[in-house]
């Protein structure tokens, strides 16, 4: 029987290695040894994902490795989720998507993984998301924030329309808006009325946390 420390380290390593089979084994071991599922997630696989996020930012890991790790992380999350005793206290819920007309979602997916690795509740609308869908989903899941990305100059201005939708429906001060994507700058973010801008995935997590703290 492996110790708790070994299991947590095993989970983290399996995620880092993007090894789905090993990750499954460690997740099962965690369940069998009655390790708190929340701890297994946060101190096990999410730690692994954080390592990968840092490596990607530093140019030490690439998209294939990130995708494999994400695959392993999601597999273990699916296994551990039913064993969560109480609902984990998420720092917030964010509705994310790539803005209408744009389908470049790799960046958005990486941000999503990093947020989930920080226990943020992410509702992913995918890519080419119509502007009204963001607000509808925010209402439906009672989200605290919207995260939008765009890689195309032809689409990025639709972010302003989403913000207008929030303002029109009286959701703006309550629901925070963060944006990102290659053509997006801090100035652009401000000008469309976004509350936060992040140049990369690691920063996005910090920005989200800051917005949720209301600072």
């Amino acid at each position: 029987m492996a110790t708790k420390e070994e299991i947590l380290a095993g989970l983290a390593k399996a995620v880092i290695d993007g090894d789905v089979d090993t990750a499954k084994k460690w997740a099962q071991a965690a369940i069998d040894s009655n390790i708190d599922a929340f701890e297994a997630l946060t101190k096990g696989c999410q730690q692994g994902m954080k390592v990968m996020g840092d490596r990607y930012s530093a140019g030490e890991a690439y998209i294939p490795e990130i995708m494999l790790s994400a695959d392993a992380m999601y597999t273990t999350m699916d296994m551990l989720r039913p064993h969560l005793k109480a609902k984990a206290v998420a720092p917030g819920t964010i509705v994310m998507g790539v803005i209408e007309g744009d389908v470049h979602d790799i960046g958005k997916n990486i941000v999503k993984m990093m947020l989930e690795a920080s226990s943020v509740n992410v509702v992913d609308l995918g890519r080419d998301v119509p502007i009204a869908a963001f607000v509808d989903k925010v209402k439906e899941v009672n989200a605290n924030a919207i995260g939008m990305s765009s890689l195309m100059t032809t689409c990025m201005f639709k972010m302003k329309d989403v913000v207008d939708m929030l303002v029109e429906q009286g959701l703006k001060p309550k629901v925070k808006v963060m944006v990102g994507g290659a053509p997006i700058s801090e100035e652009f973010a401000k000008s469309v009325g976004a509350d936060g801008y992040a140049p990369d995935a690691a920063e996005a997590v910090k920005v989200f946390e800051k917005l949720m703290r209301g600072a």
Binding site: S185, E187, K190, S191
Partner: peptide
């Protein structure tokens, strides 16, 4: 007018 540096007239 909303004119943002590098963005021009909005």
């Amino acid at each position: 007018d909303k004119v943002v540096p590098n963005l021009g007239f909005m």
